[in-house]
């Protein structure tokens, strides 16, 4: 079926809830309203108030009670309304959710999914355009994934719910309305695997979430200019699967990494470190990162300057190719 990314997550949630009656949703405005992005639209009607619960307005409460529900055998899926509002819940995420399995010597699993719409590009007010992935990817015990297409959105939410580890599920909100074909494949790709979306010989371009589409656009433009870019969608940010990236860089010798999150201490730094470790002699140029700047997210009239777009990424591609 052809559907939007938001609707694909909705279908993924619905199927997971039909498969397992221990799966339940909690979050602000997710019931009657269907969530501010309508991702949970219609689920209250099908599954009732106990399984699609409108939470009081407290993110620590949402995450903390999800932990207790998981201890009792449930598989809660939390919705945090916007990226910038995840922080009141972060104490529970880092000191409890991430650590419980380790603390209990492997006795207590917390299969909790925390869905967070993230990233900019929608002209929003403050706190509604942030990219907090590095905080979570840096925390042992959490897994962090992000989808870039309706197909992945549908399959990855189901896989995240089935995981016995806590998963932070980042949804690229500016891509919620992008359409694509979704198949209910019985044999989806592993959750924590990167994917080569376009093959190329001259340079490897790595992106994830909202910038995957941008990266593919870059490859189109570069092709017109005679440069062949290989585009890789990371999909999983923790753990990072860089097998495909290493193989690609060994062929192309050049790597550009793009993310919306601020440059310093971002995913790009970790990827660059690992690539120099695994493909040092293949590199023809330094790894170049294109990212948000080390400032708070700007007023929306400036976001086109702040976000890595096609032109900034292609500029980095040119700099890499010039070596």
């Amino acid at each position: 079926m052809i559907t939007t990314l938001a609707k694909a997550i909705n279908e993924g949630l619905r199927d997971a809830m039909r498969r397992d009656d221990k799966v339940m949703l909690l979050g602000q405005d997710i019931g009657q309203l269907g969530g501010v992005f309508r991702v949970t639209d219609g689920l209250r009607k099908e599954f009732g108030e106990l399984r699609v619960m409108d939470a009081p307005l407290g993110e620590a409460g949402i995450v903390g009670t999800a932990i207790g529900l998981a201890m009792r055998g449930y598989r809660p899926v939390c919705e945090i309304q916007f990226d910038g509002f995840v922080f009141p819940g972060v104490n529970q995420m880092i000191t409890q959710l991430a650590k419980y399995r380790h603390r209990s010597g492997g006795e207590i699993s917390l299969p909790v999914v925390i869905r967070v719409p993230y990233g900019g590009g929608i002209g929003a007010i403050e706190h509604h355009s942030e990219s907090p992935e590095s905080y979570f990817a840096h925390t042992p015990g959490l897994k962090v994934v992000t989808c870039a297409s309706p197909q992945d959105a549908y399959q990855m939410i189901g896989q995240a719910i089935a995981s016995d580890d806590p998963v932070i599920f980042l949804e690229p909100k500016r891509r919620y309305w992008e359409k694509g074909d979704v198949e209910r494949s019985p044999d989806p790709a592993p959750l924590h695997a990167a994917r080569v979306l376009r093959t190329g010989d001259d340079l490897t371009l790595v992106a994830y979430g909202p910038l995957v589409k941008t990266a593919l656009e870059c490859a189109e433009v570069a092709a017109e200019e005679g440069h062949s870019l290989e585009v890789i969608d990371l999909r999983s940010l923790a753990p990072l699967d860089l097998t495909a990236v290493f193989a690609s860089v060994r062929r192309t010798g050049r790597l550009v990494v793009a993310h919306e999150a601020s440059l310093s201490h971002g995913l790009g730094a970790e990827i660059a470190a690992r690539v120099q470790d695994h493909a040092f002699y293949s590199l023809e140029a330094p790894v170049i990162r294109v990212a948000g700047y080390d400032t708070p997210y700007p007023p929306s009239r400036l976001e086109e300057h702040w976000l890595p777009g096609v032109e900034r990424i292609l500029d980095a591609v040119d700099r890499s190719l010039a070596y």
Binding site: G61, V63, G64, T65, I67, G68, M71
Partner: peptide, 10 residues
């Protein structure tokens, strides 16, 4: 306190 509350929800 929140874990206990979630457990009670269960």
């Amino acid at each position: 306190t929140l874990h206990a509350t979630g457990y009670a929800m269960g």
